[in-house]
Amino acid sequence: MKDVVIKTRDLVKRYGAHVAVDHLNLQVFEGEIYGLLGPNGAGKTTTILMLLGLTEPTSGSVSVAGMNPARDPIGVKRIVGYLPDRVGFYEDMTGRENLLYTAALNGVTGQQAARRVEALLERVGLSDAADRKAGTYSRGMLQRLGLADVLVKGPKVVILDEPTLGIDPEGVRQILDFIVSLSQKEGMTVLLASHLLHQVQEICDRVAIFVKGRIIAEGPVEELSARIFENEPLTLKVRPIPMTDSVVDAISKIPGVSSTKKSGEYLFVTCNDDVRLEISKTVFRLGASLDHLSLEGRDLDEIYRRYFHTEVLST
């Protein structure tokens, strides 16, 4: 059993009548990548600010590495690196100067700071732009500088708020790889808040679906999908070439298939079991080829939509 690094118990934050975070119970274990996923305004950033002691909880308790952020914010902030959403830097300072400033705020100065900053700039691929003013950086570069900034203090825990927002696909790939390397190579605990589910689902060890200040589902992505789709028929998306009537007919006769529906170039197959193997065998037996075969609606987007939907209905 791994140690619990971040733990909240019945955490509540109210802004007037609005409840931003509602009895939140969160547990993040050491070394894992934990995804806090939910729509905008779900209370993700508020939760993070409470974890850092930057805002006080209305009630409930928070513990980060055994420390209470409301009592000992400095202690928490010494070991937790935080990348805010829409991170900003001093535009008239260079990237290097910005990082040196952060290092100085952490009490790291002189040669040690210079060496650490140089290494981090190298690591995020900003060595060439290090002495350019941060005002000239692109969004993606700023985000990478932000990652370096988070690591300047040598944190044990890293909290990233919307790290992939507004970044091009290649940049997203780089950032996600970087986050994975933090967890795997350096054993850092990563808490990731995002509303871009499909982007981050693949790197998270565990996710929590966070809606209206509450966690409505938590666990590894596969587990979540198994739980929600337990009693539901599967939908397969198939594209045999050519899509003749005989092929469709043969597929519909496979045991377990309850219905088939043609929609444009695709054939949607509803079934009780995963019959993907049988379908491919059938298609090949009939001399056709298979252009596409996938299980529909089992990714996080669908899970999230389902959970969100049930949540809306029940309130």
Binding site: I74, V80, Y82, P84, G146
Partner: peptide, 11 residues
């Protein structure tokens, strides 16, 4: 500029 939350996240 978004620098305040970054600075305040330092110890």
């Amino acid at each position: 500029r978004g620098t305040l939350s970054r600075v305040l996240a330092q110890p």
